[in-house]
Design a protein around this nucleic acid. Structure first.
Length: 450
DNA sequence: ACTCAAGGCCAC
DNA sequence: GTGGCCTTGAGT
């Protein structure tokens, strides 16, 4: 039986094809006239990675350990990222020729030919179908045939690489003995000093960010930082849609302590400001007490722009003690708040003269905060995972992880707060899913006042 | 300067 | 037509 299947690309770059392939935008403006087809074939998966590019670098540290990525199409050795994913050199060439030359293949069988290294030449129809099925991207083939340079998939490759490396690392950590000392160094993010901030933003958007691992032989590799969010199941290469909820409640969420800038008019207390209520650039301090046995450095961690500096505005952290549990004192007109974390107990003292008559909204915030013990045990677990089976531990990396954890928890908490839900409702109602503008937000506030 | 994913070349 | 190697050039 001979079967064919066709797809077309319209002038907007959309391709109509009965396969889970990405749609081309750069491959011709008119119909491609390509005839393809085949069964839904799944990637063989397996293996982890081979960062070598052509020619394949067989002396890469990963391949040294016998871990080698196989081409998801034919099972041959991958030579690098090609058209959206790690493939071998021959499938790269095959895919390129097929798309560039607008090849039309037919399958003489039932569109379910097995494709492997020895049989990949037999049925180009099924081979190309498998290329599409595993995710090779038509739009990565350049219509103008321009050589060199980079395309839009660069960041995706980076994230995928990082994800794979983290999987590899998790695999290594699960081994009974530490096989190779690994020093963890947090990525400085191009020297902007914004790594923690970028992780925070990544959490807001539900996308993983990367850090770097330096293996014992000095080779820099990437470590992905996947926000620990219960509802975030997006793959590294998927971007959140405007209507997507990147964050949701997760276990162990806890808003540790945050001191922020001066309270907005009408706000009675600057105690636990939800992140979404903070103004950009406002001084933010995150204070965390380490679990028993963690390095001393962990006892006192601050994060965010102006965390320990004087900051601006009427309300600034005036005292922060790194010893015997973190402690901060917040002074902001017209009231002050003091928070402390020590010996596993989080205490928020309100010294406004309004103790006993805390505004209902703040009480609600406090009540909605998850159990402190949950948070601590989660943090302890994180640190255990980080230090267990590691011959060498980078304290800075640990600090960053703890900060990340707390920031993600803050975001979780904020998103689950009544205010955030309220805001989301309004913005869906008004915008139908697109981001609210400043003007729109003002309108909403006015509407609420009325 | 280096990286690496594009396209190109050419022996098979 | 295939696939290994080379050249290119934007991004880092």
């Amino acid at each position: 039986m001979m079967t064919t299947m066709s797809y077309n690309i319209d002038n907007t770059g959309h391709c109509y094809i009965p396969a889970p392939a990405q749609l081309p935008s750069s491959v011709g403006q008119s119909g491609l006239g390509l005839t393809i087809g085949g069964p839904n074939m799944s990637s063989p998966g397996g293996g982890l990675m081979d960062y070598g590019h052509h020619p394949v670098q067989h002396d890469h540290p990963d391949t040294k350990e016998g871990i080698e990525e196989l081409c998801p199409v034919c099972g041959d050795k991958v030579s690098g990222y090609h058209y959206g994913l790690l493939t071998c050199e021959s499938c790269k060439g095959f895919f390129k020729r097929t798309v560039q030359n607008k090849k039309v293949y037919t399958c003489v069988a039932d569109r379910s030919c097995h494709i492997d290294k020895s049989q990949r030449k037999r049925c180009p129809f099924c081979r190309f179908q498998k290329c599409l099925d595993v995710g090779m991207k038509l739009e990565a083939v350049r219509a103008d045939r321009m050589r060199g340079g980079r395309n839009k998939f660069g960041p995706m490759y980076k994230r995928d690489r990082a994800r794979r490396l983290q999987l590899l690392r998790q695999k290594q950590l699960s081994r009974p003995q530490c096989q190779a000392p690994v020093t963890l160094n947090h990525n400085t993010g191009g020297g902007t000093g914004g790594e923690v901030g970028s992780h925070f933003l990544a959490a807001l958007h539900g996308v993983p960010t990367t850090a770097h691992i330096y293996s014992a032989d000095g080779i820099k590799q990437e470590l992905i930082q996947i926000p620990q969010l219960s509802s975030s199941t997006s793959s590294p290469d998927s971007s959140p849609s405007p209507g997507q909820q990147p964050l949701a409640a997760s276990q162990g969420q806890h808003f540790v302590t945050v001191s922020a800038g001066p309270p907005p008019p009408g706000q009675p207390m600057p105690t636990q400001q939800p992140p979404h209520a903070q103004t950009p650039g406002a001084p933010t301090a995150t204070t965390i007490h380490s679990p028993v046995g963690a390095p001393d450095l962990m006892k006192w961690v601050t994060a965010g722009p102006g965390a320990t500096s004087a900051g601006g505005g009427a309300g600034t952290p005036t005292a922060m003690s790194p010893k015997n549990g973190a402690h901060f004192h917040y002074e902001g007109a017209p009231s002050t708040a003091t928070g402390s974390l020590s010996a596993g107990v989080t205490a928020i003292q309100l010294t406004t003269g309004a103790v006993g008559k805390i505004p209902a909204l703040i009480r609600e915030f406090q009540l909605s905060a998850p159990d402190d013990k949950d948070w601590q045990s989660q943090l302890f677990g994180l640190l255990q995972n980080q230090t267990y089976n590691q011959c060498e531990v980078d304290l800075f990396e640990l600090m960053c992880k703890v900060i990340d954890q707390s920031l993600f928890a803050q975001v979780d908490w904020a998103r689950n707060s009544i205010f955030f839900k309220d805001l989301k409702f309004l913005y869906y109602k008004h915008m139908g899913g697109s981001a609210p503008t400043q003007t729109l937000l003002m309108e909403m506030l006015h509407a609420k006042k009325k």
